[in-house]
Design a protein around this nucleic acid. Structure first.
Lengths: 345, 345
DNA sequence: CCAGAAACTTTACACGGGGAAAATATAAGG
DNA sequence: CCTTATATTTTCCCCGTGTAAAGTTTCTGG
């Protein structure tokens, strides 16, 4: 038997035999109508196919139940993990996530922000693009909406709520570890277009100096297509290894994708980085990319607490939404990283 | 100087000095008003901050300019590449993508479909979940919207538009290649919960028989958490290598993530798969996962033409939307895979 | 059986725009 | 300069739902 299809609440109300406002209340909260009425509505609804118009409902409610999320791009499993954590947390809190990718393009990012405002989202989470991103975009969001920055923190916006990792802690952790078990590490960095990358680089330098070692950073030359992290890591280390450089050093990579490139370079030169080796090459990363256990050798790294970050970001955002969006003190939440010892260092 | 902020078109119309409907037309197509008027509006708009309400516009237009995309999950770079291709194609065609992840949960998938219908999206692209997914969901979408299945094709829905890879071609390609350069391959499969995986398995068997070899499939035992493809590949091959099995065979993996696990297992057993070796182990995958060039050894595989698939899916969907959504003949578009010869086979 | 409360219905308006027809301004033709 | 055709703009009503206020019914307890 085919379900009858009905498009508007008005038709539905005559079909069921209750008034339209009652239906409206039922959909917003079934508890708010008499039990017998709720039961009857529910019973009839089984026989009829009806979905309230998304736009009409959102247009009138004070609150849309929507959270906007801007992510730079999705071709990175770290971001997808983060997004998943956010999405699940939002779903649990009863919100719907509208995700927009900026694809490295500040214009698209700005458009996404506009879209969010025109959708009256209840709040926005933004993972900034990097240096190039349009800070004005964030400022406008910040003015108009409950707004939290996630994962990456523009140095120019210290007064905005932020949830991310404590890269000083995490980078310090692995730097210290590397210093403890082998020669003090060099730091395989990235072109300086990314706040986290820069923060890790600084953290490395600070930690090395604190331990009385000479910091050494490589791989910051700006190249085209710098966002192919693996290629970057491979290219830099390939060149170094070809010169016989660093072949018995520890190499701390700015992130796991770069480290995967470095591992590849090592393998090309017949080098097997490993924690076992007394004085040999070691390679370590940062992030605990899902593939780390499967590289050869498996990659020692620091895990970011992605789930906690996603959850905390949503939770802080919800708190701001409820709190009537008072300026107040910005809240900065930094989560510790955890060492993941594997074979490579 | 702060821009004046205005919320509704009505206020804007008095601020600018044209009627509201004229503004409406201007926003839909600036060409549709007199040049001088358009210029004036544009000039005023620079001084005023105004964004049309997303919901109000969508609610009234015949067409929402929205395309709904359902993806099973994002923790797989293949899907993210596909999504990106779709998103870019949609953007070029002037549509906005609303993406929803089903997170392996048929209920969420059904909710996503509902959402799309309640948003009156102009069309929907769905990457099916696998066997477990609720086919009813697809049928309902199919009835009500221009609808195209992408990447994975439920055997029970042969009469729906579909865009994906020709796995018989692609799997045949690499199977033949492997047969040509070394011992006939075994097939490292997956638990049979995924249409593509099954199709590749069948294609492998058919190809082997055609070439007069005995097909041999391993790894189909149903395990928990089967979606951790790498772990699955590693576990199966680990067990085999421990028994001394397959150490000088070719291993064709159902996809690259499984292959990465297999590579890992090989490395644990001191095996170095490679095309160079005369009679040794070879490992090949399928999909051209972005990390293939960086594994050690780099992974030989078959690339799916993801960009073309994404573009074609959007293009077909747009065609159906314009065509007034006539049932007509379903169109099945299959793209060829391309061999990517690297070191591992 | 009745008063009062609770639940519900009716009515009316709001939301922020789209779209068709009517009205006006502009251009073309004589 | 006037008429007519055409390009623009305005007037008016519509979309599908939320929400408040006022009126009506049903339930509760005595």
């Amino acid at each position: 038997m085919k379900k009858q299809k009905i498009d508007t609440m008005k038709e539905l109300s005559v079909a069921i035999g209750v008034s339209r406002p009652t239906l409206s209340r039922y959909f917003q909260d079934p508890q708010s109508v008499r039990r017998s009425t709720a039961a009857r509505i529910q019973r009839e609804l089984e026989k009829i196919e009806y979905v309230p118009n998304f736009f009409a409902t959102r247009m009138n409610r004070k609150t849309t139940g929507l959270i906007g999320v801007i992510i730079p791009y999705l071709n990175d499993l770290f971001f997808t993990k983060l997004l998943q954590a956010i999405e699940i947390a939002a779903m649990d809190a009863g919100f719907t996530v509208i995700m927009q990718c900026s694809h490295f393009d500040p214009d698209i990012e700005a458009r996404a922000a506009q879209t969010f405002m025109s959708m009256s989202v209840d709040g926005a989470l933004v993972v900034p693009l990097g240096n190039q991103s349009d800070l004005k975009t964030y400022e406008r969001l910040q003015e108009r909406l409950p707004f939290v920055l996630v994962d990456s923190r523009p140095t120019t916006m210290p007064n905005v709520d932020f949830v991310g990792s404590d890269h000083w802690q995490s980078t310090g952790l692995i730097t210290e570890y590397l210093c403890r078990v082998g020669p003090p590490p060099i730091f395989l960095a990235m072109p300086r277009v990314n706040f986290n990358a820069m923060e890790r680089e600084h953290a490395y330098i600070e930690c090395m100096e604190r331990l009385g070692h000479e910091p050494e950073v490589v791989g910051t030359e700006l190249i085209e297509d710098f966002w192919y992290f693996e290629e970057h890591g491979e290219a830099v280390m390939n060149a170094a290894f070809a010169r016989g450089q660093y072949i018995d050093r520890s190499v701390l990579c700015v992130n796991d994708r770069v480290a995967i490139g470095a591992l590849r370079a090592a393998s090309r030169h017949g080098l097997v980085p490993g924690r076992g080796a007394k004085g040999g090459l070691r390679i370590a990363g940062h992030d605990d990319y899902p593939l780390c256990p499967f590289t050869a050798p498996s990659l020692t790294t620091v895990a970011q607490n992605v789930d906690a970050i996603g959850k905390a970001a949503v939770s802080r955002l919800v708190q701001k939404m409820r709190g009537g969006f008072a300026p107040g003190q910005p809240e900065i939440q930094l989560f510790d990283g955890a060492l993941k010892l594997r074979e490579s260092a």
